[in-house]
Simulated assay, not measured.
Amino acid sequence: MDFHPAGSRPTRTAPPEYFTGTVLQDPIIATSSPARLVVNSVSFQPGARTAWHTHPLGQTLYVLAGLGRIQTKGEPIREIRPGDVVWIPPGEKHWHGASPTNGMTHLAMQEALDGNTATWMEKVTDEEYSVKIG
């Protein structure tokens, strides 16, 4: 058993090369092999977002609070709200983050393949992010 009491792992600032704006990550679990689950609680300030990226084994997002946005490359931006669950299949290029005026927190759950959970790409431009929804 691997037990982590509440508050025993510090909140970290997300790396600026993969995120735009202020994003905080709270580690939930990163299992040891042969298990491969990695889960973080990720909090985005208004306007903050990930860069475009993919996951080798897919990703599940569970929105905990706020109002966010998510987009698969070539598809419209969608709003995400508390209680929404999003499955992103392996290899699907996408981004996610807060809305322009509201913060958003979600659980990000993915599995590692050979130690890798994501392939990071170019940042989402302000023009891409600011497309009107609906």
Results as ranks from 00 to 15, higher is better:
Gly66Ser: 10
Pro15Glu: 06
Pro76Gln: 02
Leu57Ser: 03
Ile29Ala: 05
Glu17Tyr: 02
Ile70Leu: 09
Ile70Met: 08
Glu128Thr: 03
Gly97Ile: 13
Gly21Asp: 00
Arg81Leu: 09
Asn102Asp: 14
Asn40Met: 14
Thr101Lys: 13
Gly74His: 02
Glu111Trp: 12
Val39Glu: 08
His4Val: 13
Leu113Lys: 15
Trp52Val: 13
Phe3Lys: 08
Gly7Ser: 01
Trp52Met: 09
Pro34Trp: 11
Thr11Cys: 09
Pro16Asn: 01
Thr54Lys: 00
Arg9Asn: 02
Trp87Arg: 10
Thr20Val: 12
Tyr18Leu: 02
Ile28Thr: 08
Tyr129Asn: 08
Ala98Ile: 09
Gly103Phe: 04
Thr101His: 12
Val86His: 05
Tyr18Asp: 06
Ile28Leu: 11
Thr20Glu: 07
Pro10Gln: 04
Glu17Ala: 06
Thr11Phe: 07
Trp120Thr: 14
Ala30Cys: 13
Arg36Asn: 11
Ser43Gly: 10
Thr101Ile: 11
Pro90Arg: 01
Lys93Pro: 15
Pro10Met: 05
Pro34Leu: 09
Trp120Val: 14
Lys123Asn: 14
Thr11Pro: 05
Thr54Pro: 02
Gly103His: 08
Met1Gln: 11
Glu127Asn: 05
Thr72Cys: 00
Gln110Ala: 15
Ala65Leu: 11
His94Phe: 00
Pro90Val: 05
Asn102Ser: 13
Thr119Cys: 01
Gln71Asn: 01
Thr50Tyr: 10
Thr31Asp: 07
Val86Cys: 06
Asn40Tyr: 14
Val38Met: 12
Thr60Gln: 10
Pro100Ala: 10
Ala6Gln: 15
Ile70Thr: 13
Pro100Val: 08
His96Ile: 13
Thr119His: 01
Val42Glu: 00
Asp126Ser: 04
Gln110Met: 15
Asp84Lys: 02
Ile80Met: 01
Gln59Met: 11
Pro100Ile: 06
Leu24Ala: 02
Asp2Phe: 15
Met121Ser: 08
Gly115His: 09
Glu75Met: 04
Glu128Cys: 01
Glu17Ser: 10
Gly68Asn: 04
Pro82Leu: 03
Gly58Gln: 01
Tyr62Met: 15
Asp2Leu: 14
Ala65Asp: 13
His94Ala: 02
Ala112Ile: 14
Pro89Val: 04
Thr117Tyr: 11
Trp52Pro: 06
Ile88Arg: 00
Tyr18Met: 06
Leu57Glu: 08
Tyr62Thr: 15
His4Lys: 13
Val39Ile: 15
His53Lys: 04
Ala51Met: 00
Thr22Tyr: 00
Gly97Ala: 12
Glu128Asp: 02
Pro46Ala: 06
Trp87His: 11
Pro56Ala: 06
Lys73His: 15
Ala6Ile: 15
Pro15Asn: 10
Glu79Gln: 08
Thr22Lys: 01
Pro56His: 09
Leu113Thr: 15
Gly83Trp: 05
